[in-house]
Nucleic acid binder design. Structure first.
Lengths: 219, 219
DNA sequence: AGGTGACCCACTGTCGACAGTCAACACTGG
DNA sequence: CCAGTGTTGACTGTCGACAGTGGGTCACCT
């Protein structure tokens, strides 16, 4: 019996709402569902093969994530992002991540944090030759880790609520403009200042990183 | 006709989901639904006289707002807040509002902003003798206005996603500890530094205000 | 032509019911 | 007594159907 239980792993049972949510989020952040597209519940539920009720729950969440916006009569459409919105998103993102590095660089036991972050930087290095999609993933992993490592669950949660909008911003800007934000050395620099424990330098570094990223995207 | 349209205001037609959402949020933030309470869909739908589907959409939103947390089997319960969580919430809140005042105090045309804020401060003055509930409302109005006046919709949206948690924190702390955070002069000071246009002073002021508020709540 | 009323159509809002799942408890053979 | 096995009850997950609503169209009246 022991041999069996060792071989058998728990089944991944994820409910339809979650699946629908993931599928929709992906469709939107990859551009498969173009901004402005009117989302008709009956159509989507048929395409995804889920009931409208289930679909609606997923749509509500996307709405709160800011990927989907509501029209006057409750009609939903894929949110249209423009330069001003992108700047807004990145301004808030900068505020959150600034707070994260301020917290991290104040910690006494930040050695472990630095180790974990360097791991992420290494992951970024390994995908420099891969398609943009993978690089974005590694980039966001790094930034998410910044929030996660603070141990502040609210911070992580808030950041993740922005994640969809961030992905949309990157997609909206297009490959050429996005790629310059994935530079590994810029991220390594952030880890270095955290390591050094210089709070103001760390905050400035992240703020600059974000300002530059936003400027690149809307340029 | 013009006279009529001026007098006639649009009828408040709010769907059941919204009503359920508001009712639940209120019940939680006032403590009518105590933290840790297991939320049974069938019970709630019967109490609120809405179908389970409608109720579920409202619950999902509350879940994302952090007022409701999910157990292992999809079971929902009112989130239990402790001192660490309160500090986390207020740390994120401080980051957001700091960013708001930084933005505001940099604006050339901040005179209008200052006017609007002083209006809110005046509103706070007028409710000093009223019950705590009203004072909290005025206080949050002020802080929400900080975010709103930046014109950054993402910032406002993010702040509002935290609003429920903030209210829970205040309720959790109890009247005595919460009341000292409603001091009018502390808020007037914030407006003053924005007016002066001193960016670093403004940020420090808000940060101090938030630190103090959080410390008061968990003391 | 201009306005008006009666339709229809494409949606969203809302509901009640069925199916699936887990924990707890009763049960049964050793 | 007890390990392992039905059984039950209390939930959540999911679904299909009906009702309501605003926009569009088209004949009709003036």
């Amino acid at each position: 019996m022991a041999a069996q239980t060792a071989a058998l792993t728990g089944l991944a049972r994820v409910n339809l709402r979650q699946q629908a949510l993931t599928a929709l989020r992906r469709a939107i952040t990859t551009g498969a569902l173009a901004p402005g597209t009117h989302l008709v519940e009956t159509e989507l539920s048929e395409q995804l093969q889920v009931s409208r009720g289930t679909l609606r729950e997923a749509l509500r969440q996307l709405q709160q994530e800011g990927l989907v916006s509501a029209g006057p009569r409750g009609w939903l459409s894929v949110r249209t992002l423009g330069a001003p919105e992108v700047l807004d998103v990145f301004a808030v993102r900068a505020a959150l991540e600034s707070m994260a590095v301020r917290t991290l660089s104040r910690r006494e036991d930040r050695a472990a944090v630095v180790t974990a972050l360097r791991e992420r930087v290494r992951a970024m290095e390994q995908v420099v030759d891969r398609p943009l999609e993978d690089r974005v993933e590694a980039d966001l992993d790094f930034h998410r880790a910044l929030c996660e490592l603070t141990g502040n669950a609210t911070l992580l949660h808030t950041w993740q609520a922005l994640e969809g909008s961030i992905r949309m911003s990157i997609m909206w800007a297009g490959t050429e403009r996005a790629v310059s934000n994935m530079r590994v050395d810029r991220h390594a620099a952030i880890v270095d200042v955290i390591d050094a424990g210089d709070v103001t330098a760390a905050v400035d570094c992240v703020q600059a990183h974000m300002d530059e990223a936003a400027a690149n995207l809307v340029s």
